[in-house]
């Protein structure tokens, strides 16, 4: 009856609880030392260039000046200006329209192409590389390339239309054409990414599910709609949130193609911030807008994390 018998002498504790606690905390402190070396560099830069700017933006959004002159506390003035600014309203409207159009098109096309690629195992790699290619091109240069496609006089598309005897289209100089052209640019650049994204998702659909579908005699299309797509749904919801966050930051192609025009027709939220900050020196409004964008992104992220639980079934 080993455990019930009294503790033998050799098994008596010799360290007092105090001594033990002291030694323990000394030991733990010692083990903590290398943490500073490992975590320090990132934490320092993170604090300096992410946490501080976020806090600062919040504070500055209640101030006037701050960029060149001293800051002056103005309460919610920036926020009221922000809410009453027509240009900003246009920017928000433009960005929203752009986001909806670009995401709808790129998701639809991306899914279709991914499904086609998934059934086309032979030359899959070639198509993957080809579709991915535009992603290499920085958006600003993609914008330049689009200039040669969509320019009223020398753009290839208009040249083609002319040779076919059709009227030319003013892609960049009219509304809402300009915004749609920019959406087209982003779709062109981003399509490959979403194809690969969906392809990775489709290929992670358990093969036994697919085989079960084959044995049940489900046709390709039906199999895709009834089996693959529902399994992908959590992944798609998550992708949607990522895409929303990325696309709300529309700036580069505006800078390349239209500079916000014609008559604010392509002014996006980030373009607005940039203009307020560096052209009009209206920093308070810019900070308020930055903060609003930040809040929007945080809201979308929280939304995304809401789906994180579901995401696992779709992927692994």
């Amino acid at each position: 009856m080993t455990t019930t018998s009294a503790t033998p002498e050799w098994a008596q504790l010799t360290m007092s609880p105090d001594e033990c606690a002291r030694e323990r905390s000394r030991f733990r402190r010692h083990a903590l030392k290398p943490i500073i070396g490992f975590l320090g560099p990132f934490l320092f830069l993170w604090t300096l260039f992410l946490a501080v700017p976020m806090g600062w933006a919040t504070w500055l959004s209640f101030n006037e000046g701050g960029l060149v002159s001293d800051a002056k506390f103005v309460g919610f003035k920036n926020w009221t200006t922000f809410l009453n600014n027509d240009e900003l309203r246009t920017a928000i409207k433009n960005t929203s329209v752009y986001v909806v159009v670009a995401i709808t098109v790129v998701f639809g096309l991306g899914l279709i192409l991914a499904a086609l690629l998934n059934n086309n195992k032979k030359s899959q790699n070639f198509f993957k590389v080809a579709l991915y290619f535009p992603l290499l091109i920085p958006p600003i240069m993609a914008g330049m390339i689009f200039f040669f496609l969509t320019h009223y006089d020398m753009g290839v598309i208009n040249l083609l239309l002319q040779t076919a005897g059709q009227d030319r289209v003013n892609f960049l100089g009219a509304n809402p054409n300009a915004l749609m052209t920019i959406a087209g640019l982003e779709v062109w650049r981003g399509l490959g990414f979403w194809v690969l994204f969906y392809l990775a998702g489709l290929q992670s659909v358990p093969t036994d599910l697919i085989d079960a579908g084959k044995i049940d005699g489900a046709r390709n299309t039906r199999r895709f709609l009834r089996i693959s797509l529902p399994t992908l749904r959590p992944l798609m919801l998550f992708a949607l949130v990522i895409a929303l966050i990325f696309n709300f930051q529309l700036f580069d192609s505006v800078q390349a193609l239209t500079k916000g025009g014609p008559t604010l027709g392509t002014t996006s939220i980030v373009w607005f911030i940039y203009k307020q900050l560096f052209t009009f020196q209206q920093s308070g409004v810019a900070y308020a807008t930055s903060l609003a964008l930040l809040l929007l992104v945080v809201a979308l992220t929280i939304f995304a994390y809401g789906f994180l639980g579901h995401r696992k079934d779709g992927l692994k």
Binding site: F49, P53, W56, V270, L277, S290, L293, L294, V297, L300
Partner: peptide
């Protein structure tokens, strides 16, 4: 998910 654009102004200032 904090985008560069959202902290652009204060980062510039910093």
């Amino acid at each position: 998910m904090v985008p560069t654009a959202a902290v652009l102004a204060p980062t510039y200032l910093l």
